[in-house]
């Protein structure tokens, strides 16, 4: 097995994951893209473990660890997404700008540019800032 094949497959998977993280708007889809990137890393680890014929099996053991950490990550991430959905009624990361810096000093509601679910989004944003 030429090592180039698994490594190139892993590179392609990683860049697909990069595209997904950057281009998707739904938070769950972003989580899926993160999983794709983690899987690319796993494929790399397994390929190099096979290539180097490691006696300690570092690559494959590390792959198992990465899988476990990915499971923990997706569990926590989904808990955060659900808490977000409970509070804000949306999981669109484009609308979750409560932690962003305001564009200018004279603009009380920061996400004034996008207005589609503006009523609930802006209201909850104001409530969040009031709580702070």
């Amino acid at each position: 097995m030429h090592i180039v094949y698994p490594v190139v497959v892993s590179v392609l998977l990683f860049s697909v994951g990069v595209y997904g993280v950057l281009a998707r708007r739904n938070t769950i889809l972003v989580l899926m893209s993160v999983e794709l990137m983690l899987n690319a890393v796993n494929l790399n680890l397994v390929a190099f473990d096979v290539w180097l014929r490691d006696r300690l099996h570092s690559g494959q053991v590390l792959t198992l660890f990465v899988i476990v950490i990915a499971a923990a990550e997706v569990g926590l991430g989904l808990a955060i997404v659900l808490a977000l959905f409970r509070n804000r009624r949306t999981v669109d990361i484009d609308h979750l700008r409560a932690l962003a810096e305001p564009d200018g000093p004279a603009q009380p509601p920061p996400p004034s540019a996008d207005g589609a679910p503006g009523a609930s989004g802006a209201a909850s944003t104001e409530r969040g800032e009031g709580a702070l």
């Binding site: 990683f14 860049s15 697909v16 990069v18 595209y19 950057l22 998707r24 708007r25 739904n26 484009d94």
Partner: peptide, 21 residues
């Protein structure tokens, strides 16, 4: 489901893939 910066994202992904490959 897609945000507005799809083209930039595709550009970044293709550049990443090209460099890494």
């Amino acid at each position: 489901l897609d945000s507005g910066n799809r083209l930039v994202a595709a550009l970044v992904a293709v550049a990443t893939a090209a460099v890494l490959v």
